[in-house]
Design a protein around this nucleic acid. Structure first.
Lengths: 317, 317
DNA sequence: TATATTTGCGTAATCAGTTACGTAATTAAT
DNA sequence: ATTAATTACGTAACTGATTACGCAAATATA
């Protein structure tokens, strides 16, 4: 099993499984040793019932952290052995109330006796270790409760993906990308309009020459995101954030956030104090992103775009 | 899940299983996140094959610590996806040699990439804990390798059973037990002989009054073992250890050892320097016990018992 | 009061692993 | 050169768990 030595901790799952197997595999033999005719997997149920309370299948399941069909089945097996009794709740006909039979109680006293030795053996074992397994498990459970492994990995991915993203200034080399990335989402959700064609076909004339800016996000060298600042002659706003597009292939790589942050920085360095944008509430991830960046919903400005149903502004501090 | 707080560490098996589940359950989603069409359980196989070596099913199984049918099945699934190639060994027609296909190598490079983030996430997680799970698992594996949980529990049981055993001097109250316990084993393996009846029916006259001794082992108050020292008029030996019997119901409780040790102590306190005994090699546990206590095989003494085929002595130091 | 939703729980299907077993190929022993 | 034992590995059956589903009872809502 050189596997573990090589893979390192990524294989923690497999390794846990193996240890679980090893600890569990002796259980049946231990019951045999004490001449107790019981399946090890019943133990949590026996234990839960041992206080003498009556308890339903679902409560039992919650108690021991198993699914209710699993408990249901085990109770069936224990019933066959005569260790438990079931009865329907008179007040609630759905509930199946379980309790230990006298035979079950007798068996449990044997289990209880056996437990003394098992506990002592485990106590001995864990006294021989430097690292406390029980406490370690508790900590891991707590941490995973707070944030699942999946979320943790997602964060790491985002972080690393961010490093692969380069923001560069627009050059004519990106003319094709600028148009097609925008066309992609516009024509998916809406239709291309007159003003779209103007800006996308002639970015130099319609955006840059008028004092605007365009940034391109390169992911592993490929242009997968674009965003423009369009100069406004308006008195109130300095720029409109527009023509923002990220390739669907590059979703989840945080490119949108990086790109938008960069364009705001650019606006700031161009002396802007207020940025305007138009969007549509159908584009939820985009709206969320704008919100996260500090944009606030406003109302009442006229717009040439029919697809616009929300307007937002960012006051630069 | 109050279960764990109450049971304590006896439930370590169940608890390990739960943590394993929790760690494992996200695996599929993580692969999805990276757009890798692979089942998590294949990972160890992928990893083992990633070095480019060709390797057989059984070797793979040994490598990753699973049974060979399990590997065989997984390889079948991976084959269907086109991730691996198999071929029969030309020199040994039984061997099924597996390697990664080019498609498999491509997929593995994706997995490898994903591993960077998973490793980072786990590293982060474990940095946040006081108790080191990985190291703890290693220690437990090592200790269980040396001595299984079953053996540890058995030892504890023996130890605790020993405490329930009381060794007391014979009184006429135990006359019945002295006879029946001996009769039980003698008539199981052999037949009762003249000298047996003498000693068992009149222990006072034939054993005690002649300067011998009888000890009784009480287990939870019940006489379940007996053993006698019979004075010998022999010049060489002081006593014969005889009429040793332990109830089959009380097997495995270490009663034999405790009883025999006590009778040797008694012989010592009576000034003995050499003890003799007769037995039969068919009674293996008894012979083992005598051996463990320091008795050595001797030969050549005459004996009235036809069932005797081995003679032993213990020199008291 | 009628209808929709939630709850309890049993059954069926599925899953990831195991052990048991059979067969064919190879190797060892007589 | 047989015969016996071992090895490689596939198939089948089993195990202990899960999720999916459906029914009936209870509860909430309009």
């Amino acid at each position: 099993m050189k596997f573990f030595q090589q893979t390192g901790k990524v294989a923690i799952g497999s390794r846990l499984r193996m240890l679980t197997d090893k600890v569990t595999e002796d259980a049946a033999k231990i019951y045999q040793l004490y001449d107790i005719d019981v399946q090890p997997k019943w133990f949590p149920i026996f234990y839960s019932l041992s206080k003498g309370e009556e308890i339903t299948i679902t409560e039992l399941a919650k108690n021991i952290g198993h699914s209710h069909p699993s408990v249901s089945k085990m109770i069936g097996e224990m019933l066959k052995k005569g260790y438990v009794a079931e009865r329907k709740d008179r007040l609630d006909g759905r509930r199946n109330v379980i309790s230990l039979s006298s035979k079950g109680k007798e068996i449990y006293s044997k289990i209880d006796d056996q437990l003394i030795d098992v506990a002592a053996a485990i106590e001995d074992l864990s006294a021989q270790t430097q690292n406390k397994l029980w406490e370690a498990i508790e900590e891991w459970e707590f941490l995973l409760e707070q944030k699942t492994l999946l979320r943790r990995v997602m964060e790491k991915k985002k972080e690393r993906d961010g490093l692969k993203v380069n923001i560069v200034d627009y050059t004519s080399a990106y003319k094709q990308a600028f148009k097609s990335l925008n066309e992609e989402w516009i024509s998916t959700y809406f239709v291309m309009e007159e003003s779209d064609f103007k800006a996308l076909d002639h970015p130099q004339e319609y955006i840059l020459d008028k004092g605007g800016a365009i940034l391109v996000a390169l992911y592993e060298g490929k242009p997968l995101g674009v965003c423009a600042l369009i100069k406004m002659n308006d008195g109130e706003y300095d720029f409109e954030l527009a023509k923002m597009a990220v390739s669907p292939k590059a979703q989840g790589k945080n490119i949108g956030f990086i790109l938008a942050s960069a364009i705001i920085e650019r606006a700031k360095s161009l002396g802007a104090s207020k940025i305007y944008l138009e969007s549509n509430t159908i584009l939820k991830p985009a709206i969320n992103l704008y919100h996260k960046l500090g944009f606030q919903k406003i109302a009442g400005k006229p717009t040439p775009y029919s697809r616009c149903n929300i307007q937002m502004e960012l006051i630069i501090t």
